[in-house]
Design a binder for these strands. Structure first.
Lengths: 235, 235
DNA sequence: TAGTGGTCTAGACCACGGT
DNA sequence: CCGTGGTCTAGACCACTAG
């Protein structure tokens, strides 16, 4: 299970195990996670380490710790529609739906001597017979970092999985600006909106752990995408 | 300094001390906080407790821990323009400006037999000779919880300080929806905007630690208010 | 009362940054 | 090399929840 000699900290290893178990349905909504004492025995590590892993899952909104009762799995909690466009497939799973991606544009271009791939994708959720479009994602990706990326079919492959598994590059941090904007006829058409209306838009960059810029992105959100924000007040 | 018998955890006490020192200028931008070892000696508590306090300040974006170097004070960091409307005066201090509040409406009303205060405030930042309007805040406050609240002059008093100090009620958690909207002539007039344009708006509730609803709020953001979002990608 | 998570101690070893 | 923060151990006591 855990590798005590790995460079990856134990609490990160545990966190990943628990997260994948939750997202893959080993634990279901409202289930209790094994207690911290049980996890101590199961993984042979101390409670401090376990608590650090669970605390981070808590921060992500995936579980909720309740004093005296236990740690609950929270799949469809308040925080599920926040900014985690990054894990669109997780978002879908949380809604018990399937993620759908339609590639609208895919072209390479040059700028300042470097080559890039521009990728425009329409993303949505599908349940039974209805499809709900959620966002239009525009990505600019440096081919110097991702050679031959344009050969991929992005409608069935997750961009970030591709980065991690094919190129061994791990998206780590994103820096975005959020702005309002008016819809355009093209956007209305793509998102299947009946009338022009104000929308939310975010744009920014994605970095690796060593602060290498690996993507510039713009995301336009359909009104179907409900932004919720929960935060603690520092005092 | 710290009271080991207080019901308030030591790490919370320490966090509050450090935060107020940072915001009051005892430590300045780019300064190093005392090292964890120094803080151990100074406060006579273990490193674990100190690290918990600093980790939370880190999460708030007030400090940045750097391996091998120390913990830096970060006043004007990326996260400073995020959703922390709550601490408008801190936001101002971080920008080296003064917070300004103008009361636009103040009236009591009844609904379902309960009495409320409706408060509309225009909020901005002032530096030297220029004033920049940032938000229009509309609050609905239950007078059952805050008796006689309407007697206050809100242009010079912080609403949350009032809650804490006069009523001993501590805002703890907020749950908001974020939406785009079109400006109206009234809003343009109040925010001194030249033309109609899409804006951001958030609305929701503020709760205490025991989940008592103490405020309903709506905030309309001027384009001067730049929303930035920084987040880690879970993987 | 038994079991849970919340806080805290007093250590240890490590990886990183700069001298 | 030393001082910094990062991880981890093996305990302890407490507060909360529920039967």
């Amino acid at each position: 299970m855990l590798n005590k000699n790995d460079v990856i900290p134990l609490y990160v290893q545990l966190k990943r195990i628990l997260r994948s178990q939750i997202l893959n349905g080993v634990f279901k909504e409202m289930d209790l996670l094994p207690s911290e004492t049980q996890l101590m025995k199961e993984y042979q590590i101390t409670r401090t380490t376990i608590r650090k892993a669970i605390a981070e899952l808590n921060k992500e909104g995936l579980v909720q710790q309740v004093h005296g009762k236990g740690t609950y799995v929270r799949l469809r909690e308040t925080k599920d529609t926040v900014w985690n466009f990054q894990s669109f497939s997780d978002l879908a799973r949380r809604h018990n739906q399937k993620p759908i991606t339609k590639v609208l544009e895919k072209e390479t271009y040059s700028k300042d001597g470097d080559h890039f791939l521009k990728l425009v994708r329409l993303r949505g959720l599908k349940s039974e017979e209805t499809t709900t479009w959620m966002t239009i994602d525009t990505s600019h990706l440096p081919l110097k970092i991702f050679p031959n990326l344009e050969a991929n079919n992005f409608s069935s492959t997750s961009l970030y999985e591709l980065m991690r598994e094919t190129y061994n590059i791990h998206p780590h941090y994103t820096n975005l600006n959020i702005e309002p904007m008016m819809s355009t006829p093209l956007i209305c058409d793509r998102l299947e909106l009946q009338e022009e209306q104000p929308l939310l838009r975010s744009s920014g960059i994605v970095l690796t752990e060593s602060n290498v810029e690996i993507e510039r992105i713009e995301i336009i959100y359909s009104p179907n995408f409900k932004f919720k924000l929960s935060q603690y007040i520092h005092s």
